[in-house]
Design a protein around this nucleic acid. Sequence first.
RNA 1: GCCGACGUAGCUCAAUUGGCAGAGCAACGGAUUUGUAAUCCGUAGGUUCGGGGUUCGAUUCCCCGCGUCGGCUCCA
Length: 637
Amino acid sequence: MLRFTLPDGSCKEFSSPISVAELAATIGTGLARAAVAGRVDGKLVDLTTLLETDGAVEIITPSSPEGLEIIRHSTSHLMAHAVKELFPTAQVTIGPAVADGFYYDFDYERPFTPEDLVAIEARMEEIAARDLPVARQLMGRQEAIDWFLAQGERYKAEIIADIPADQTISLYRQGEFMDLCRGPHVPSTGRLKVFKLTRLAGAYWRGDSRNKMLQRIYGTAFPDKKALSAYLTLLEEAAKRDHRKLGKELDLFSIQDDAGGGLVLWHPMGARMRQTIEDQWKQAHREAGYEFLYTPHMANLDLWRTSGHLDFYRESMFNPMTVDEQAYQIRPMNCPFHILVFRSRIRSHRDLPMRWAELGTVYRYEMSGVLHGLFRVRGFTQDDAHIFCRESQIETEISAILDLTLLTLRTFGFEHFEVNLSTRPEKSVGSDEIWDKATTALRNAITHHGLDYCEDVGGGAFYGPKIDVKITDAIGRKWQCSTIQLDFNLPERFDIGYIGEDGARHRPIMIHRALMGSLERFFGILIEHYAGHFPLWLAPVQAVVLTITEAHNDWAMEVGQKLRAAGLRVETDLRNHKVSYKIREHAMRKIPWLLIVGEREQAEGAVSPRDRHGKELGLIPLETMLQRLLEESANRT
RNA sequence: GCCGACGUAGCUCAAUUGGCAGAGCAACGGAUUUGUAAUCCGUAGGUUCGGGGUUCGAUUCCCCGCGUCGGCUCCA
């Protein structure tokens, strides 16, 4: 008797082995129809897999993340099948499911065109309609290599040669098309109904720029049409929020060839916002017990030799320049300077912890092809800080940093956090003891904040473990900004120390941390998060006073002055235009409040506010509106 | 850096097979004094990214640069 435990805890018993599909059918016809694969004792398998021993079995449908991934993976095979039918000499390479779809890389004698994409998609529909069974089969290693070589598929043969000897080689056949694959896959091509090819791109074989450039076709697939159209809507929404577009429309910043790629020019409206962000940042840091440093943008190359950056960070650094026959380096990091400040005198254990912050502008060489608006630039300002502390202070300091991090991120409207702890990699400096202690301290600090976290084992830098925090924006995209990083290396290299209670010299622990990461990038994220509709406290112009006719200019100017005197960023628009014209213009600038001033308002010392959603509040005394604006600004909502 | 697509006025975009480079918005000038998302008229605005080539003639075709955009980790 065979016993299978289902996820709900119930059991099914059978006298002889049955397939996953058959098991699904005994549970329900709906489930059997939706099933794309099964999970047996934690392992994903095909529906055709025979269940021959007792175990925990789960039926996978497209509504689960695993099921969706299988659909996408199978769709990538469907695409490869279509490509091989249309372009028989194209070689297939790899085609996995990825975050929001799938891709497949091909080697073909000419570039694919957008028209090819249309033809491929049409052929995919056709093959799906043929409803070909997708069957798994095992093959001997050499047999598989020979088979693929006979088909002219050299990449597949290469892949097989690299598969560890203890793994079996499995292939999936659908009609004439056979592909090397671990699986599992949907049982037949007819199960793939909703898909779309999205773009063409180049991609190196195995992601290595020394290898041949292949052609990658991206696509996506969903369980149903509704999910696909929701995804396409999300893409449209993201395009509307694109910070490069909004940055231009709202006149916030520019990046110009005349200055150079990846170098950001902050225009007055963007600079106002940056000042607001910096003010907030400074205030929070003062309250958290930080001091501020200002350090140079370049330094003698020897400093970077001592820090080790010249060895392990060189490819991200600009070339040195010569000054008085000495080599100088524009800085890619701030930390060596903070170390120099620490080392400038003898430090006592009583001085620790020392928390030093700097909005430090750094310059890093990024390959021209990766530059991207404010997200990937060559010159940017880090909200950097370095904490020098004793080993025993690590946990409290990390905990305080996490407090400050969450406070800061919440201030900017981010509520969902994803925390990642990266631990010791194989190649690293520092003793086992210090790594253990530090990693435990980081873990404790995270759990004390009640945060869920993932551990990336071996994912830390060679010089210390770290915590990364990801935020989720208004349309669900994740961004990593904050990072908290322990460093057992730099204090060593610069031989810094403090005098302990015992009178002996001890090595301090150094913590690097950034909350927003790069001000430029964070600004870009904010623009997209708010879609340009900044909350009042951030908005570069908080209100515009606009007149009906020039008869109301005096009152409008008085209103403007009073609001500005209260610290609000307010413009007056006295132009001789229709109100509707002026409203349209300021609405497009996404100004939070428009204060209309005409006959009645002037007579009663009032304004008629209109909010950014077009809601009119009617006549309100100026003083009342002033208080309301101040309150809204202070609440940061 | 590499692959592909793209590059026309400040912005958004036109220009049939190679045949005088255009529109809307913005700017500027004038008129209009207006109550909640565009008042009317006029003026000016261009090395069609840069350089070379083919041609009687190139925004259009070819070559070389530059830039922008999408990609280049997500294991068969």
